[in-house]
């Protein structure tokens, strides 16, 4: 599989007088993959994300996004169309006074012609289940709806990669589910590459691969299942293990010997049911 994004020996600090925020990072993101980047607050996740779509430009190291080197300023517009981003705070990323105007914002910037723009706005609003909200003002939407608007605006540009920088961390459980369901669909059905940044271990479960960032360095890379079973790594990086894993572990303490690898609600229920049958 070709690489959608490759980062090579990237180091970065905001000022010459401040410590490095990213230290010799190298990673690749494959086409169609769903990558989760985990890490505690201040570990440099958002900073790293800004390199993917040329919001930050490397001085040391190299970032190539969708075949384009981000040092080349002539490519920035096109890179930002290919790599869309949804940010954390739903209130601070919608620009326009109505939903449809906001979804159109990126298309206007990209110079998409009138008719095509209207078609795409309509499609994306429909895809994200926002019909009927076209003329609504953002401040009248719920957090989950606002993030869906942001996602619609990102999707309208037909990106190859969508980067979610803690896009669900300020949402209630329902809003979080709304957004994650759509992201899953975009990844599985449309083959959009997803880079999901989070400090919530539970969100990593459904992804293909996890990278753990701590203090500007990559400290772990692997599949979610292995990471979640690895208490030492989780503890060392200030990540709390998922509730289900804790429950299973406690059960085992009481000699209820169910499978060690349960990660989801469903798996736990199945494990307990089949355990009963064995007895």
């Amino acid at each position: 599989m070709p690489n959608e994004i490759s980062v090579c020996n990237l180091s970065f600090r905001y000022q010459d007088s401040t410590p490095y925020v990213l230290k010799d990072i190298s990673l690749t993101v494959k086409k169609g993959e769903w990558l989760t980047i985990l890490g505690p607050n201040g570990s440099g996740k958002s900073t790293l994300a800004k390199f993917f779509n040329a919001l930050l430009i490397p001085l040391t190291g190299e970032v190539v996004s969708c075949g384009k080197n981000t040092v080349d300023s002539a490519e920035w517009s096109s890179i930002r169309r290919d790599v869309s981003m949804v940010f954390q705070n739903p209130d601070n990323q919608l620009v326009a006074p109505t939903v449809e105007d906001d979804v159109a914002f990126g298309l206007e910037s990209a110079g998409i012609p009138y008719d095509e723009m209207h078609q795409r706005v309509k499609d994306c609003i429909q895809r994200l289940g926002l019909e009927g909200f076209e003329k609504t003002e953002p401040h009248n939407l719920s957090g989950g709806q606002k993030q869906r608007v942001a996602l619609a605006g990102a999707l309208a540009l037909k990106p190859k990669v969508i980067v979610l920088d803690e896009a669900t961390s300020m949402l209630d459980p329902q809003g979080r589910n709304e957004v994650l369901t759509i992201v899953r669909k975009l990844n599985k059905e449309d083959g959009v590459t997803i880079i999901a940044i989070t400090h919530d271990v539970n969100e990593a479960i459904a992804s293909d691969r996890v990278i753990v960032l701590n203090d500007g360095s990559i400290v772990y890379e692997g599949i979610p299942r292995e990471l979640l079973a690895n208490r030492e790594i989780l503890r060392a990086n200030n990540l709390s293990s998922p509730f289900i894993v804790d429950v299973a572990r406690e059960l085992r303490k009481y000699q209820i010997l169910i499978d060690e690898n349960v990660l989801t609600h469903e798996e736990l229920v199945n494990a307990i049911c089949s355990y009963k049958r064995i007895i």
Binding site: Y114, V121, L157
Partner: peptide, 22 residues
């Protein structure tokens, strides 16, 4: 935050910009 979000969405001033409203 808003400035970053606008930049991420390719905002580039009025140059080459098309309009959603007519």
């Amino acid at each position: 935050d808003l400035a970053t979000a606008m930049e991420a969405r390719g905002y580039n001033g009025s140059k080459g910009r098309t309009k959603f409203r007519r």
